[in-house]
Design a protein around this nucleic acid. Structure first.
Length: 301
DNA sequence: CTCCAGGGATGAT
DNA sequence: ATCATCCATGGA
């Protein structure tokens, strides 16, 4: 006997039907993607999935049985596809990468790693707090900001907190931000939050700028230098050529690719020409491999 | 205890 | 333009 109950769409507390989207693990390695230090608001669920927010919506990734991939739910499929970068042909991007050994090892380590397309403010604010901090600490700070100043929304697992808007962080002020555990990064973040909240700079409008113009605009913000500007370009504006160089990437470049180069400028120019038009995308594979597989040598184990 | 973390701003050369 | 120093905080 057949019943319709099992086929009824899941309804949220609001009564609104929530869409879902199925994705294979080959298409998207969520574990690598969400552990690769590009977004800091996702939490592993007890079922082996992930919980987080996209904008004002609570989103959950539920693992399908038998390694069948993921069911993403909580936002419209178009929103999910955009955020997780699913409309990009990954094989075409990978084909632009160089064929050296370390690059190939990094690709083999996490073939389905993707670069997200995050809301600009969340990405910008998060990376301002990232200076001289470990990924786990950035996550902790991010959650502190969400719980103190973020808007709570209903979630399939209970409650979720959105990343606080610029006005909320501007109102929190330097001291309110410092209470989130971000130390000396509180002052520049408070200043940038004020600039964004005032409308003096509209992050959405920067999307139409060229790479050079976008970088220049981001560099005017307190707490944003070349590295963080590159992260925001790469993780929020889809500029896959932007190449962030942190301590890990500097090690990788000096030990594996360009031992003789001295300045950051030289390293950056080399990286852009050597790794090609999607250098930043390549960088994410290298970073994730070096940082989590212990391939960066002189690293804390 | 010391050393380090997805750096940037500042002041001195 | 390049360089040294300082910045808070928690993990290893």
């Amino acid at each position: 006997m057949r019943t319709c109950a099992a086929k009824m769409p899941v309804r949220a507390a609001t009564g609104q039907v929530r869409d879902s989207l199925r994705v294979s693990r080959a298409m998207l390695d969520l574990d690598a993607t969400l552990r690769s230090g590009q977004a800091f608001g996702w939490v592993a669920s007890p079922e082996g999935g992930w919980r987080g927010t996209i904008g004002r919506e609570a989103v959950e990734a539920v693992p399908l049985p038998c390694g069948g991939g993921w069911k993403l739910r909580g936002a419209a499929p178009a929103t999910l596809r955009r955020y997780f970068g699913l409309d990009l042909d990954l094989s075409r991007v990978v084909a632009t990468f160089p064929g050296d050994t370390f690059m190939q090892e990094s690709l083999r380590y996490a073939p389905g790693l993707r670069i997200l397309c995050q809301p600009p403010w969340e990405c910008l604010a998060s990376f301002i707090t990232s200076a001289l901090k470990q990924v786990a600490q950035i996550q902790r700070v991010s959650h502190a900001m969400r719980e103190r100043y973020g808007e709570p929304v209903d979630a399939p697992w209970g409650k979720a907190c959105c990343f606080p808007a610029a006005v909320a962080l501007a109102a929190a002020g330097e001291e309110g931000l410092r209470a989130c555990g971000m130390g000396f990064r509180a002052r520049p973040l408070a200043r940038t939050a004020r600039i964004i909240a005032s409308g003096e700079i509209r992050l959405e409008d920067l999307a139409q700028l060229s790479d050079a113009e976008l970088e220049a605009a981001l560099l005017t913000l307190p707490g944003v230098g070349p590295k963080i500007a590159a992260c925001v370009m790469l993780f929020a504006y889809g500029r896959h050529g932007a190449f962030p160089i942190d301590v890990w990437m500097e090690r990788v470049l000096r030990e594996r690719y360009a031992p003789e180069m001295a300045t950051q400028r030289e390293l950056r120019d080399f990286a852009r020409s050597y790794f090609g038009p999607c250098a930043g995308y390549a960088q994410q594979y290298l970073f994730h491999y070096a940082r989590t597989a212990g391939a960066g040598r002189s690293a804390p184990s």
